[in-house]
Design a protein around this nucleic acid. Structure first.
Length: 425
RNA sequence: GGAGGCGUCGCCUAGUCCGGUCUAUGGCGCCCGCCUGCUAAGCGGGUUUGGGUCAACAGCCCAUCGCGGGUUCAAAUCCCGCCGCCUCCGCCA
């Protein structure tokens, strides 16, 4: 939810932000009107309630005739109060709904436009030139098969399309990546977390995944639970309804959890391999900090993401995602896209978002500052999404014979193995 | 899944049976002040959260006793539903 005060006092700023995302500002007018109705309803209720309270107080002392009269008057008043309260409740709910429909106000520096209007901030490393090396690179599906690392056929047999088994060195690779990521995070001062991947509607709603994005979310039949698409969800909700000690900020968490995505609407996209799957595991960074510090923290998260990708010797670029492609919660988003040799293009491996106060307003997460309590900022960033990282590593570091040379940093986590060798034809 | 208990403004706690005197008691912690070689103790005051009004983080008003609804002129207190925690039984990695 955006700041109601900003909406009230600077509606044009919110309108401009909507336009930047390429959205209509009708929701803004709606929320403004709802806000006005709500404030009136509250004032009305409070006046009547104060009156009723004052009268009611006289009753115990009153006697006989006087008491009867008082009872009658306050009975009538009480009905009014009840009606006013109902009106207030409705107005409040309508306002809430209208507010929830407004996406976060995009950052001033976020590029305007849609999916294709991103700005490349930097390019790190050079994509490997397989032509110069004289061999045709195998894709990760083929590499996964001959290394005995990824079993897509059985994934489909057991669970359906977009599922996989990681086996042997594939499983080992995931565990190594998890540990490398978790160790880096811990060394940087993050608190390590294993987070639940089933959450209640509040957590889902509060992080902005139940609106237009609801199509992509799995819901448990017959239970009020959802499977999370990222541990951003449980981690944001971790401190919901809490007032955090401002001097303890930033609170940094690195959470491991499985992630589940329906991938509705992406039929036909990335159908081959494990680039786009219904389930994968991920180590996610999540931070609670002050609004003022959020831009700087966002940059720090990006640096940690880059540090991790650097350890894997991957070629990648960093993009500044355009406003129209931000999703509901983010004010700004940077993606790190690694070069995938057999696709001849950069693909998103990690993504970091500054959600400013949007999520903490919905989840009621505040900080206690010297000058009062106010919402904090939340930020998230992928440290390592297993499947895509495995794809990038296998394809980037493959050799002509189908073996894969592991990046230095990973070797200690792989029992000292330097090269993954083919076990199948 | 079955049975029972519990949820009070940071923490602990009184109040709930029997509705109004609750403007929620007391202790601890914390903050401010006084006193004081220093510190401690002692003394006085303050200390939920949200909203409104206001020049004001002075005062005043409304809501808030896990959450939501109901009964009533009036609910921390009575009734119903939900959530959470605890104990026991069953099942189980």
């Amino acid at each position: 939810m955006i700041d109601p005060r900003i909406l009230r006092e600077q509606p044009d700023r919110v309108r401009a932000a909507q336009a930047k995302r390429g959205l209509s500002d009708a929701v803004v007018d709606e929320a403004l009107a709802a806000d006005e109705r709500r404030r009136q309803a509250i004032a009305d209720f409070e006046t009547r309630r104060a009156e009723q309270k004052a009268l009611s107080k006289q009753i115990p002392q009153a006697q006989g005739e006087e008491k009867q009269q008082l009872l009658e008057r306050t009975k009538a008043l009480s009905a009014e109060v009840k009606a006013a309260e109902a009106t207030q409740g409705e107005a409040e709910a309508a306002w809430q709904a209208a507010m929830m429909a407004i996406p976060n106000v995009a950052h001033d520096q976020a590029p305007a436009g849609g999916e294709d209007d991103f700005v490349v901030l930097e390019t790190i490393g050079t994509p490997r030139d397989f032509t110069a090396e004289g061999f045709e690179p195998r894709d990760h599906v083929e590499l996964g098969r001959i290394l005995g690392a990824i079993d897509i056929e059985r994934g489909a047999k057991v669970s359906g399309s977009r599922f996989y088994f990681l086996t042997g060195v594939g499983a080992q690779l995931e565990l190594a990546l998890v540990n490398l990521a978790m160790d880096q995070a811990r060394d940087a001062g993050f608190t390590q977390v294993i987070a639940p991947s089933l959450v209640r509607p509040r957590a889902m709603e509060g992080t902005g995944f139940l609106g237009q994005a609801a199509d992509d979310v799995y819901r448990i039949e017959g239970e009020d639970l959802y499977l999370v698409g990222t541990s951003e969800v449980p981690m944001a909700a971790y401190h919901s309804d809490e007032i955090l000690d401002a001097s303890a900020l930033p609170l940094r968490y690195a959470a491991f959890s499985p992630c589940f995505r329906k991938e509705a609407g992406s039929h036909g996209k990335d159908t081959r391999g494990i680039i786009r799957v219904h389930w994968f595991d991920k180590v996610e960074m999540f931070v609670f900090t002050t609004t003022e510090d959020s831009d700087a923290e966002h940059r720090r998260l990006l640096e940690w993401e880059k540090e991790f990708l650097d350890k894997l010797d991957l070629a990648y670029r960093v993009i500044d995602v355009a406003a129209g492609d931000l999703g509901l919660s983010a004010a700004r988003k940077f993606d790190c896209e690694a070069w995938i040799p057999t696709q001849g293009r950069y693909r998103e491996l990690t993504s970091t978002s500054n959600c400013t106060e949007f999520q903490s307003r919905r989840l009621d997460i505040r900080g206690r500052f010297p000058d009062g309590t106010r919402p904090v900022a939340t930020l998230n960033g992928t440290l390592c999404a297993m499947t895509r990282t495995i794809v990038a590593i296998l394809e980037t570091h493959q050799n002509a014979d189908g073996s894969v040379t592991l990046p230095q940093a990973l070797r200690p986590y792989m029992g000292g193995i330097e090269v993954l060798k083919p076990v199948h034809e």
